[in-house]
């Protein structure tokens, strides 16, 4: 499984769980890796439960569907509850402790609790919990370079509306901030 990584990113609609996965996949393509992104969501456009499964690999990815993930990013309590058992033994789970106060249930995985919503307040507004979490995930796993994600963000900013493109600096700040949390051991890992 060298260079292979499976991750489930989950939250409620509007938190950007799906978009974080898309960023990750694009970055994988930038680095010439194989990748798949597969979403699941309810009927609601906003507020419903959403998640995506992302595979990154040096070789062909046959199944976009993940049984057990190397990592889970849970942006709210419902996601923690739903996916805690889906983490591979020895894997880890990033939990948004701003929105989840649930007790953790497992001893064979690592937990990284980050009060994402509170921390996001410290950054230039608007800041993005999904991107902060992604920064932390990448710094922890080193599966892809942060720079690759930044490159993707910059490329995307060229094709989206001016209003969205204006948020590029905020996105770059959020991902660096997330990576720094791990680098400087500002969160319990």
């Amino acid at each position: 499984m060298n260079g292979d990584m499976s991750v489930i990113i989950s939250g409620f609609g509007g938190q950007g769980a799906l978009f974080a996965g898309i960023l990750l996949c694009h970055a994988a393509v930038v680095e010439g890796k194989h990748t798949t992104w597969f979403p699941a969501y309810g009927a609601e456009m906003r507020g419903g439960a959403v998640n995506c499964s992302v595979n990154i690999s040096d070789s062909d990815v046959p199944s976009p569907i993940i049984d057990e993930a190397d990592a889970v990013i849970a942006l709210n309590d419902a996601s923690q509850e739903k996916f805690e058992h889906k983490v591979k033994s020895g894997g880890f789970m990033i939990i948004n402790s701003s929105l989840s106060h649930l007790k953790t249930k497992r001893t064979d995985i690592n937990y990284i609790k980050i009060p994402l919503n509170e921390l996001a307040q410290k950054l230039t507004q608007p800041a993005f919990v999904n991107v902060i979490a992604l920064g932390a995930f990448l710094e922890k796993t080193k599966i892809l370079k942060i720079e690759s994600v930044k490159e993707v963000m910059k490329e995307m900013a060229k094709t989206v509306s001016a209003k969205k493109a204006a948020l590029l600096p905020n996105n770059l700040e959020s991902i660096d901030f997330g990576a720094n949390l791990i680098r400087q051991q500002m969160v319990t890992a």
Binding site: I22, C25, V29, H34, T35, T36, W37, F38, P39, V61, P64, I65
Partner: peptide, 9 residues
């Protein structure tokens, strides 16, 4: 739906 919704290169 898997193929319709999934992304890959």
């Amino acid at each position: 739906g898997v193929l319709g919704q999934m992304m890959e290169p």
